[in-house]
Design a protein around this nucleic acid. Sequence first.
RNA 1: GGUGGCGUAGCCAAGCGGUAAGGCGGAGGUCUGCAAAACCUCUAUGCACCGGUUCAAAUCCGGUCGCCACCUCCA
Length: 482
Amino acid sequence: MPITFYNTYTKREEEFLPLEPGKVRMYNCGPTVYSHPHIGNFRSFLFADTLRRYLEYRGFEVLQVMNLTDVGHIRADADAGEDKMEVAARSEKVRPLDIANRYADIFFDLVARLGLRRAMVYPRATDHIPEMIRIVERLVADGFAYAVNGAVYFDITRFPAYGRLSGNTPEQLDAGSRVEIHPDKKNPRDFALWKFDPQHLMQWPSPWSSGFPGWHIECTAMSMKYLGETLDIHTGGEDNIFPHHECEIAQSESYTKKPFVRYWLHARHLLVDGEKMSKSKGNFYTVQQVLDKGFHPRELRYALVSANYREPLNFTFESLESARVALERVSNFRRRLAEARTGAQPAAEGEAARIAATARAAFQAGMDHDLNVSRGLGVVFDFVRDGNRLLDGGAAGPGDVAALLAALDGFLEVFGLAGMLGAEEASAAALAPEDAQLLRDREDARRRKDWKAADELRARLRARGLVVEDGAGGSRWKRVGP
RNA sequence: GGUGGCGUAGCCAAGCGGUAAGGCGGAGGUCUGCAAAACCUCUAUGCACCGGUUCAAAUCCGGUCGCCACCUCCA
C-alpha cells in the first residue's frame, strides 16, 4: 500500500514518491516571531510534526526545515499598511530584532513543551538577505523581474503557470476587480521581490535601494539553501496558498527552471466555538493561555492533532476535556502493561501478537491515506480495548505484554504522546514519606476491614494528588493533575 | 464578484459505489467492601434539502440552502 497525499497543486490525492528514495525533503512555513503563537499556528506546526513523525515511522529519513520569519512584511499598497513588527517595536520601544529573539525563544519553549521534534534547521529571514538578493538579481537579469524606483517586482506575465496552485489565474484576478492599481507595476498582480520604504525600521543595502525583501522571497532562498532546488513536501496553513505559495512557485521555478515542490500540503484553519478566531470576538487563544488554564500540553496536543489536517478543526474547551478523558484511558492501559511487564521474552505467537499485528496493519492503512489520524486513532482505541480484554482474561504472559507495549508505543510515538502520558512519572517518582505512610495506613485499615478508615485515607490521598485503586493483587496508586 | 473547500448521532469525527469506525457524553450490566480502573450491552432505518445515474449512493451527477477559507498582514 502506497502512502498518498492530497496535493493542493493537482487537487488530487497522489501516491507519495520522494525524489530520492527513502529520503524526504520537507519545508514548513513557520512562525512569524513578533507575537505569541496562537493555537491555530500550532495546529499547523503540529500537523507538520505529525507528518514528519509518520514518515519516520514508515522508515523515511526526513530532512525538515522550518523558517522563522523575523522580517515584517508590508502590504502591497504601501501607504495603507503598517508592518506588525514595527508597530510592536514602537509600542515596546525596543529594536525589531530584540522582539524577534524574544518571541523565537517563546516559540522554541512551546515546541519543547508540546513535544515537537526539532527540525534540522530553523533558518531566519534576516540571516539570509544576501541569498535573497542574489536570487532577485538573477531574476532581473533574466527578465523575470524589473526594478523601478528602488523596488523590484516579479512580472507574472513571464510565468504562464501563475495561478495554477490557487486557481487565481491572472484573468480571473483581473475579473475580480479588487486589485488596486500600483503606479510602478506593469501588471497589478506583479508582486514585490524587493521593497523600498524609508520609514521601514529594518533595512539592508541592495543594488536597488536600501530596503527590505518582499514577502515571498525568503522561503525560496532558504528552502533552496538547505534542501535543494526541488522539495518533496511544502506545508503551510491554507491562507498561504494565495498569494504566498503561488508567488513562491513563480519566482522559484523561474529561477531554477525546475519544479519547486512535488507535494503541496495545506492545513485548514482552526475555528474556535465554530467561528474564526479573532481578538474582537473574544475567542482568540495563545498556546500559553490554554496551558495557563490548567490543561496539560498533551491534552492540547491531542485536541489539535486528532482531526484530519484537511478538515476544519473546531476547537472548544469541551474538546480539551474530551481529550483529557480519552488520554487517561490510553494512559491507564499503558500503565497496566508497564506494570505487568516482568520479562523481555520474545513476543508470543498467540492472541497478543495477533492483536498487535492487526492493529499495526490497520494503523498503517489508515495513516497511509493522506495522514488520516482519525482512522489511526480509531485503531489505537480498538487496540486498547482488545489489549485490556486480553489482560482481563489473565492469560497474558511477559511476551504478550511486551508485544502489546511495543505496538502501543509505536502508535504513541507517531502522535508525539510517548513519554507524555504521565504513567511513567507516577511509577518512577519517589513517593513522599507522608504519602507512603498514608498508603500503609490504608492497607492496614483494609486488612482490618475498617472500611470507614480506609475510605477516609483514600480521600486524604486524593486531596494530595494520589488516586488509589484496589484490585485483586492489592492496591496501586497514580498521580493526577497537570 | 472570483477561487478552493465543507455540511454524518447531544458534542468531536471516520467513511472515497455494496448496506453507518472511533472518542467524549448518556443509559443499563459484570467485577469490587465501596469506589476507581477495565470489560459487556444499548445510544443515527439514516448521513443539510430536492432531483438524477445505478441492481446498489453518505459516497457519482445536477440544483437549492447553510457554513468556512483565500483573493489584504494572518497557520
